[in-house]
Design a protein around this nucleic acid. Sequence first.
RNA 1: GCGAAUGUAGCUCAACUGGUUAGAGCACCGGCUUGUGGUGCCGGGGGUUGGGGGUUCAAGUCCCCUCGUUCGCCCCA
Length: 415
Amino acid sequence: MATLKPVRGTQDVLPAENRQLRYVESVAFGVAQIYGYGEISTPIFEFTDVFARTLGDTSDIVTKEMYSFEDRGGEGITLRPEGTAGVARAVMSGGLQQDLPLKLFYRGPMFRYERPQKGRRRQFGQVGVELIGVAGPLADIEVIALGHQFLDRLGVGAQVTLELNSLGDTQSRAAYRDKLVDYLQGFEDQLSDDSRERLTRNPLRILDSKNEGDRKIIGGAPVLSDCLNDESRDFFDAVKAGLEKLGIAFEINSRLVRGLDYYCHTAFEFTTNDLGAQGTVLAGGRYDGLFEQMGGRETPGIGWAAGVERLALLTGETVAAPRPVAVVPVGNEAEAAALDLTQELRRAGVAVDLGYSGNMKKRMKRAGNLDARFAVLLGQDELARGAATIRDMDSGEQSEVSLSQVAEHLRQSGA
RNA sequence: GCGAAUGUAGCUCAACUGGUUAGAGCACCGGCUUGUGGUGCCGGGGGUUGGGGGUUCAAGUCCCCUCGUUCGCCCCA
């Protein structure tokens, strides 16, 4: 039995749950299309370099969370831990930089070797968008508005808060980093072990620490927004003004830094308090340095990704399966006729189920369990008259309809 | 990777301080009703109590190991 279990952090998704997940994805894609995005699919695995070089050597994803292996040809391969790097690689491989700006939507599984928790799996679904090739703040505004509208359409708008920050351009970020390290070094012996290590590796991340002692120290730390140069500040102001104009509420969170190295300027997260520790539901930011870092031409970009399972948990709604019509033959001779009728209805686009075996009572019960809208009863009597009895499973009303009219009758009844 | 909790039938849960064949509800199957589901009544199948080891006359119950899950840390969608 133990060996028949799925690998830790993975799970089998049955039809009822899949309907919810597909629903989340389809809402996302629907809204993305309204904004002019087309869907791109990239491979589920890439050369390890694609992720290692873009995410940064200091990110936790690269240092301990990647599913990496060597394939039979000796190539270093990694199951994608996120979507942006693969999309950027595809844009460069395909020469798509000639077609800027690009508006791309993606969906699919991602893989991270993490300790599973509620809303956190080793294989999980993401939907995401990337707007590539637009340097101005209008891109940031549109991408955030798209995320906002998506969450709204899903019906979780009231449960989430948009947090916003600016990391500034490279120059601003470097200036801030120096200031922050200066400040924190004064408290080095008081910082948590994790944070002390990050002091040299990735000091900005200390701002995000949940350790109580750390937070006290952070409270007095210099603020990133004070270090933005004029250009970065103007950019951020423009983004904020745009969101206000669109009526999209946000909170400035100066401690918001993204985990991945390629981000600059705008960083944002839609978070909720309804999912325990995994509160981030949709997050993204601007990544103007990414393409260069991958060895390509400098190309600005901004995007976000959202966790499909987390959003499905948040909506709490179940998505009902479509209601079929059940064809119920009575007696052996009726089975052949039932098969014909079933096929005819299916060709006409009607969803049909037939109880495969058993007496009428059993088949009716199965029809009930399938939540059938109508049952089509075929017995000796009906067959002799070239007809079938159609039963409305909700009202219990029955009427006899000639066989040739069954499809039409059902269609008119809304089946 | 660290800390804590937890694991009994398909699902939700019982089983006093360790004490005879581990129970219930729901679900499933059959019958009352051999041409009618959703309500009712009667009956039935189903558990090596996550797995392994140990303590004991006796372990679902205590101890150790292991696997899974949950909550937090870390990190992130």
